Amino acid sequence: MLCSNRPDDFGPQFTLSSPIPTTCFVDVILVPLPVWIALALLPILILVSLHSRKANYNPSTAHLHLQPLRSCLYTITTTIYYVLIVCNILMQTLEIVRLSLIHFGIGLLPFAYVGLIIGGALHWSNGVQGRIQIWQGINAVIWLGGTTISVVKVVGLVKEGINGRKGSKYPISDQTIDVAVMAGVYAGIGMLEAILGLWRVNRGRSCGSLATASPVQHEALGGK
């Protein structure tokens, strides 16, 4: 069972946590929702990008590629970004394991791994080397969705009773802290995604200036 041994059932509301959805509803319906949306958007964006590339193909600029960003600060920020993704993978694993220890169903919590992996892969590959347009939108759905749903879950757990399940292997107080940490990490990943995205945009503008400059301008801008 997805929510075995939980005091709340699958219904969207529970007396103790009302009007916040039950933890079962959150874990089965809401947690996977951003991932489902991302998976639905991904093939659409791929098809749109393929069509756009064919329509706007220019042989004279097809060989041009953005050079990797070499800034030390950019590298540090990117490293923190990936570390936060790993942190949430570990935190999600902790919640799943501890729920299993008290024989509570884990719902569809493993779907969170899919979202984290998709987001990290899209960022690492820069939307598979720029072939997927506005891939950042998919990541925004994952990070903002993860943050929002985690916050909703925290509120529901608090309303259910922060002192609940005392003496068990996974008190509600511990789960509340775990989920709150995940909410903060999701928010942090989202902010870093925005910062790194702006960095890329500025880099793209600089490279665009070099690509369209005359030979004299190109040399003045630092081109070779």
Rank of each mutant, 00 (worst) to 15 (best):
Y170E: 04
V152G: 05
V141I: 11
W135V: 06
T147I: 07
T148N: 00
N139D: 09
R165M: 12
W143A: 04
V154G: 08
I142R: 02
I162E: 00
N139T: 08
G146T: 13
S168H: 06
I134A: 06
K169G: 14
K159W: 04
Y170I: 09
T147M: 14
I142M: 09
K166T: 09
Q136V: 04
G137N: 07
G146M: 12
N163Y: 04
W143F: 07
I149K: 00
Q136W: 11
S168W: 09
I142V: 15
V154Y: 04
K153L: 15
I149W: 12
I142C: 02
I142L: 13
G146H: 10
I134P: 01
I138S: 01
Q136D: 14
V155P: 04
L144P: 06
N163G: 11
P171S: 13
I149S: 00
V141C: 14
G164F: 01
V158A: 08
I162P: 00
I138Q: 11
I134M: 13
K166D: 07
V151G: 09
G167C: 12
A140Q: 10
V155H: 10
I142N: 07
K159R: 08
A140C: 12
V151H: 05
V141Y: 15
A140T: 15
K169H: 08
G145P: 09
N163D: 14
A140L: 12
G161E: 08
Q136R: 12
G167E: 02
K169P: 04
G164Y: 01
K166E: 09
T147N: 11
K153P: 00
V158W: 13
A140W: 12
V158H: 02
T148A: 12
S150W: 01
R165E: 10
G164C: 07
I149P: 02
G161D: 04
V151Q: 10
Y170A: 05
I134H: 09
G146P: 03
K159I: 02
S168Y: 11
V154Q: 00
